[in-house]
Nucleic acid binder design. Structure first.
Lengths: 339, 339
DNA sequence: TTGTACGCGTTATCAA
DNA sequence: TTGATAACGCGTACAA
């Protein structure tokens, strides 16, 4: 690997001059700068990020925590889109990223020590179990962190609008005449609590009474569980006229079950999803769902973190909510005038 | 950040002793070693990977090339599963990874220079445009590389069994009486060529004549395109009795189109997918598809690369094929005895 | 405008 | 068994 010294020897200047010239320092004459750039190019010089980092205390490397118990992680379009967006944003800004985990190997690491070991300039927590002590150790440290869909004191958080999404859904389906609304929600995370809250608030506001049997739980992204919940709902004496699913993917499990019962969407029963995955626009009828702007969420997380890193003095923690929008597909029937 | 020197001062030994003790060198007495470990723990010492790497010329960081023109990249379950598996395997072995791209930032990079800049010990090419000159630059270098689903001379390649998958599919559906078989294949990559070859060979062997109109192209993972191809196939005078799709996800586009024509799967028309995504087992009827073992592919790629890195002397390039298996779902009708 | 020299935190070699 | 010291490649304060 050719290094500064090699270039210096060829150019007949000192190693310091080369370093300055390559970073286009105004200290060096344009003539010498050009010459050194040329030689460096010809010799195939590539800087050593590690040596640079050692000196500057900046790695231009961001740690990303992306831990998902269910192992669905990357398969979940909400997260994979977000991750793509994070990567692309970081890339444009000249940053790389490393997945941070409890690294096994020669040394066992915690999330924090792993991030420190790699000298990450900062960390984005895309998804994780926020009760994990390792997360708290990380949040309690001086590491610069941005969290997604969960907020910690004095930390910047990028949130999807879980506090209003279900409200918008309920408003819409109520306008189409539905009052027997079932809600299958995901496992009890902060996100789920927000959505449930949003759901209940909207129902109260509209004076809709939701029996306990209409509220079910099925883990996110596990269509089988949503299928089971659907079956239970369909076996009730008083069936709901509309079922809201934890996410679009889970809806697939419900769809299968609904068809098995010989029912048709939306004529016999209406359904609503959450996320707005690509497939929701491909299937016919197109799914009515709440589209989360995961791309923007990822982008903002990356930008806010970089800003914190590059302008530490100006840092003030923020709580940014990225709003989504209702995709009015064709899976909710207008039953207002049908009675 | 506490460093070796800090520990040395506290322990009253030299910095070299601390370094050796922490790596459990036999040069250092057990007593001193224990003491130093204890102090290090108490002081919260975390090594600096960059300084270490500078000295050892090993970064324990693997570059992963994961470039997808269609941007579906992470959303494609075949690749996302593979990537998860790569990450998990690397993690257990004590390696991190960095996505390698034509990094923009202060300096523009090629894939190779990016990998060198980060001092990657090796690179896994998970998916990329193999015609890209940057890929060839990378392959022509002395960087240790393992490729997936594409092989280069003197390089280890992990391949899915694209050369036999379609043969197995054709054998199966032929046994159920199908001879009017349409094949919608993906865009023309090496993978596609292998599959097409496998398809044609099997048809010839079984004396099945496939009219040109039965061979269609639709980009992978774009259900809309497969939907269009399906529509064209269904409008033929002599409709196929079975359609093979580029992948399970693309099948969704076909399914929608088939239902729009008032046809039912598999009674009116049979279908087969490729990949074996999770959803293929959720939908009813369960999809008949060829399951690629993407988890094993990712694992082997990581293991082979690490082996090359850690035992460079013993390296011999290999071409490893990971076999998949036919998932016999319920989307292919037995029409053998129906005539 | 250019050069010199030191230090970033390690590991490795050699001497004690 | 331990210590002193020289690298690794780069950036930078200071000297020339």
């Amino acid at each position: 690997m050719v290094k500064l010294k090699d270039i210096a020897d060829v150019a007949g200047v000192s190693i310091g001059t080369v370093s300055k010239a390559l970073s286009n320092s105004h200290e060096i004459s344009i003539k010498v700068t050009k010459k050194i750039h040329k030689i460096a190019r010809e010799m195939g010089y590539i800087a050593n990020s590690q040596a640079r980092s050692l000196k500057t205390n900046r790695s231009y490397n961001i740690g990303v925590v992306y831990i998902d118990k269910s192992k669905a992680g990357l398969k979940h379009e909400y997260f994979s889109t977000m991750l793509s967006s994070i990567q692309e944003t970081l890339r444009i800004k000249g940053y790389d990223f490393t997945f941070i985990s409890n690294l096994v190997g020669t040394t066992k690491h915690t999330l924090l020590s792993h991030a420190r070991y790699r000298r990450c300039d900062g960390v984005i927590i895309a998804t994780a179990d926020y009760d994990d002590p390792e997360i708290h150790q990380l949040m309690a440290s001086d590491m610069k962190v941005v969290t997604i869909d969960h907020d910690f004191p004095n930390r910047t958080a990028i949130m999807s609008d879980n506090n209003i999404g279900l409200g918008k859904i309920v408003d819409y389906i109520y306008k189409l005449g539905h009052t027997k609304i079932a809600f299958i929600h995901g496992e009890m995370t902060q996100v789920t609590k927000d959505r449930l809250e949003s759901f209940k608030t909207a129902c109260q506001r509209l004076n809709i009474d939701i029996p306990q049997a209409y509220i079910k739980q099925a883990d996110y992204h596990l269509p089988k569980q949503s299928g089971i919940a659907t079956r239970e709902l369909l076996s009730l004496d008083e069936k709901p006229t509309c079922i809201i699913y934890p996410d679009d993917y889970s809806f697939m499990g419900g769809m299968t079950e609904i068809e098995k019962h010989g029912l048709s969407i939306p004529n016999d029963i209406s359904v609503v999803g959450y996320d707005g995955i690509y497939l929701s626009r491909i299937l016919r009828p197109t799914l009515t769902t709440y589209v989360q702007n995961s791309e923007e969420i990822g982008k903002q997380a990356a930008l806010k973190l970089i800003n914190h890193i590059e302008n530490p003095k100006e840092f003030i923690s923020e709580r940014i909510t990225i709003t989504g929008k209702l995709q009015k597909g064709h899976t909710v029937k207008d039953i207002k005038n049908t009675f």
